[in-house]
């Protein structure tokens, strides 16, 4: 075989692999959306879930997913960015830093069901918070934190060294340089990474089974007192999210239209995650474009 033939074969092989990946993704997305999208209507999105009759909706589950997401991001974004800044800018290259970095990596690769178990033992049992939004959000924070740390560290490391030197040479302190040069330059990458992690958090179910629970109290959307048990924003009530709902109706649902509800919920979930991804790309591109002065 001569070099030209080998080269063609290699090219063909890579095109084939890429095609398989793209094909799998499109057929999966297509299947889920196609199966579920016909069940999505205003009633499905805004009605309470039913326990045994057909025709239930996903209002509370959808709300829970967004509320849990918001609380998770509230905890994990500041903490993760601070950790990433530390690793990228302050940590000296020594054994302790290397150990810290591998801790973050292990945390990132931890199966989410283990994170859920840990959350149950700590937040649910030890702290007596029960199955609650707070326990779920903290479990998701553990799940999401290493991602944000990595994204921050990588985004900061990707800022050219000459930018940093330029700022230092003008008599800026380390913190001034981080705040006014490094973070703004890292912002597009940071934002894209965070929005992508939002999709991951939004779709997570295993970590929530034992921390946020499989049920939701009858929420009263007119009651915004965070201490009231029926309030949508009470952090100490149990909260079944959309992805947990899909799992629940499929495994132990007794509603006759479980398949339909599951398919509809899956489609909603996939569409929302897809939207997050598209928004991440658009926002990243927009900022890039604005800052490069074109």
């Amino acid at each position: 075989m001569n070099a030209k033939v080998t080269d063609r074969l290699a090219t063909l092989c890579f095109i084939l692999c890429a095609a398989i990946t793209a094909g799998t993704l499109f057929s999966l997305l297509g299947y889920i959306v196609f199966q579920g999208v016909s069940h999505i209507d205003w009633h499905f999105l805004t009605a309470d879930a039913s326990t045994f009759q057909a025709g239930g909706g996903i209002k509370n589950q959808l709300w829970n997913s967004f509320y849990m997401l918001l609380m998770t991001m509230f905890f994990s974004v500041p903490l993760g960015i601070a950790g990433g800044i530390y690793l990228a800018e302050y940590a000296r290259p020594n054994k302790i830093t290397a150990f810290l970095r591998s801790c973050v990596e292990v945390l990132a690769s931890l199966p989410s069901i283990i994170v859920g178990m840990f959350g149950m033992l700590l937040f649910v049992n030890t702290f007596h918070w029960g199955y609650s939004v707070l326990s779920g959000a903290l479990a998701l924070t553990i799940f999401n934190l290493p991602v944000i740390i990595r994204v921050t560290e990588d985004a900061l490391a990707a800022v050219a060294r000459d930018q940093k030197e330029a700022s230092f040479a003008l008599g800026a302190t380390h913190w001034q340089t981080i705040r006014t040069v490094l973070l703004p330059a890292a912002f597009p990458g940071l934002l894209t990474g965070i929005i992508l992690s939002v999709g991951r958090v939004f779709g997570e179910s295993a970590a929530l089974l034992f921390t946020a629970g499989l049920s939701t109290p009858n929420l009263n959307f007119g009651d915004w007192n965070p201490m009231s048990p029926q309030s949508p924003i009470n952090p100490f009530r149990s909260a079944e999210t959309l992805s947990v709902h899909i799992w629940a109706v499929n495994t132990n649902g007794i509603i006759p239209d479980a398949k339909i509800v599951a398919a509809g919920s899956s489609a909603v979930l996939v569409i929302v995650v897809l939207l997050f991804n598209i928004i991440a790309r658009l926002v990243g591109a927009l900022i890039e474009k604005r800052w490069s002065g074109k």
């Binding site: 050219a160 000459d162 930018q163 030197e165 330029a166 700022s167 040479a169 003008l170 008599g171 040069v181 703004p184 330059a185 800052w291 490069s292 002065g293």
Partner: peptide, 14 residues
């Protein structure tokens, strides 16, 4: 602040 520097590659901030 008293001893400034100019680098090899132009490095304006974005």
């Amino acid at each position: 602040k008293e001893i400034g520097m100019l680098f090899q590659k132009p490095n304006p901030f974005p």
